[in-house]
Simulated assay, not measured.
Amino acid sequence: LNAGRRRRHATGAIRRALHIRDKGCTFPGCDRPPRWTDAHHLTHWADGGPTNLDNLALLCREHHRLIHDPTTGWHIQLGPDRRPDFIPPPDIDPTRQPQRNLYHQRQ
Rank of each mutant, 00 (worst) to 15 (best):
F86E: 00
R35T: 14
F27K: 01
T95Q: 14
H64G: 02
I67F: 09
L53K: 06
D47M: 03
P70K: 12
R61K: 15
G73N: 07
T51N: 03
P70E: 08
P90L: 11
R35S: 10
L58N: 02
P80C: 09
G48V: 01
T43Q: 12
H44R: 14
P33T: 11
D93V: 08
Q77F: 12
P34H: 08
P33V: 10
N55Y: 01
T71N: 12
H63C: 05
L78K: 13
H40C: 02
P84L: 04
R35Y: 14
C30S: 06
T71G: 07
W74V: 04
L59T: 08
P33Y: 05
I92P: 12
R65D: 11
I87L: 14
G48H: 01
W74H: 07
L78W: 05
P50G: 10
L42D: 04
W45S: 00
H40K: 04
T71S: 14
G48N: 01
L66D: 05
T72D: 00
H64K: 06
D85C: 14
P50R: 10
D47N: 08
D93E: 05
W36D: 05
P33M: 06
P28H: 08
W74Y: 12
D69A: 12
P89H: 13
N52G: 15
R32M: 07
C60W: 02
F27W: 06
G48T: 05
R82K: 15
L42E: 02
D31F: 13
I76Q: 03
